[in-house]
Write a protein that binds this DNA or RNA. Structure first.
Length: 356
DNA sequence: AACGCGGGGAA
DNA sequence: TTCCCAGCGTT
């Protein structure tokens, strides 16, 4: 793209953004921590989903320092239901690093930001440009799609991370103006989210339609070419809900794996008998409650739910290698606990009162 | 380069 | 059903 054409593109899109930008809670936030938090929550997660989580998290842990000093349990609890829980662990670790190595202030450069846990190329560029006004590019799913269409890039855009060509393009297109990179990046992303959408782009509403090569060639709607994702692998599990009127037995999943650090009713991919035996239970004392299906990006989990009484036992053995802690939790505390959406479904199916 | 890692909204 | 979302870290 020629220099004048790039200028025209920047002018039109920035002007469109000034008039049409979405009103989002983190827009205009002064605090880099707030921007960082929003960008982390927004990784592979829709804006509408993030908003209530963002507001609650920022209300409960309003500064990097308070996040750094919070327990992991608390952080996971605030993340509970949002998914990709490793993000919460890494955000927590990075906050401690920011306090330890940067005096509690987030670094401004892409290179320094990238050294923080959970901050990759996209997030570093976003925080650097939006929170600090640095001239840094971003490529997320929106930007990759918008640029692929604008420049009729027909090669595969590998995942949301984008190809090297798209990153180079995004860098070239950054405005020179002081502090404009943040608005420019957000303008590209807003355009992708509201106009240049995946299925049926609303080209008639696009401020840069006249500059769009993909549009001119009739390719826009078919770009970018994405590699088809594999179907989730089916997994059968069984979960045992041991509950009294006031408590339910939960176990904590080991870190680093699926649902790491979250609490759930003991479950297994193996036979129910083995799981029951590991808890010292007689299978005959368990009542079948039904089955549910929970679909993740890489797993289709079909979970059979059985229920039994909690009894008077005070301590419980670990119900298998997936877990590193086990505890009878008061149902009154469930709503504030660190659980996945799957756990909520299991507790609901088991009929646990006051489930999260 | 491919995979593991959640959950949900929209067509 | 299918797609894909303000991605990152590991292998």
């Amino acid at each position: 793209m020629t220099r004048p054409a790039a200028r025209a593109l920047q002018r039109k899109l920035l002007s469109w953004y000034a008039a049409s930008k979405r009103d989002l809670p983190w827009r205009g936030a002064r605090d880099p921590y707030a921007i960082w938090l929003s960008e982390t929550m927004l990784q592979q997660t829709r804006v509408e989903t993030v908003i209530p989580y963002y507001q609650r998290f920022l209300r409960e842990l309003p500064t990097v320092r308070e996040l750094a000093e919070a327990t992991e349990e608390r952080v996971l609890s605030l993340w509970s239901g949002l998914g990709y829980y490793r993000r919460a662990r890494m955000l927590h670790a990075a906050a401690r690093r920011v306090v330890r190595e940067h005096g509690g202030r987030l670094p401004a450069s892409v290179d320094d930001l990238r050294r923080l846990e959970g901050v990759g190329a996209y997030t570093a560029g976003a925080v650097s440009s939006i929170a600090f006004g640095r001239r840094a590019a971003v490529v997320d799913g929106n930007v990759a799609r918008v640029l692929a269409r604008l420049f009729a890039i027909e090669e595969d855009v590998k995942s949301a991370r984008g190809s090297a060509r798209v990153w180079a393009l995004a860098g070239d297109l950054l405005p020179d103006g002081e502090g404009q990179a943040g608005d420019w990046n957000q303008a590209l992303m807003d355009l992708g989210a509201t106009v240049c959408v995946p299925r049926e782009p609303r080209c008639e509403r696009c401020p840069v339609e006249a500059l769009c090569t993909g549009r001119a060639r009739g390719l826009a709607a078919g770009l970018p070419r994405m590699v088809r994702k594999k179907a989730p692998r089916p997994v059968r599990r069984v979960a045992i809900v041991l509950a009294s009127r006031t408590s339910v037995l939960l176990a904590r999943r080991r870190a680093g794996a699926l649902f790491g650090g979250l609490w759930e009713p003991p479950g297994t991919d193996g036979p129910l008998e083995a799981l029951a035996a590991s808890l010292g239970l007689d299978v005959g004392a368990l009542e079948r409650r039904g089955e549910l299906v929970h679909v993740l990006s890489h797993r289709r989990m079909q979970v059979e739910v059985v229920r039994g009484g909690l009894g008077r036992r005070r301590s419980w053995p670990l119900p298998g290698p997936e877990y590193d802690a086990v505890e009878a939790v008061p149902v009154s505390r469930l709503a504030r606990g660190a659980h996945s959406a799957l756990t909520r479904k299991i507790l609901a199916l088991a009929g646990v009162p006051g489930g999260p």
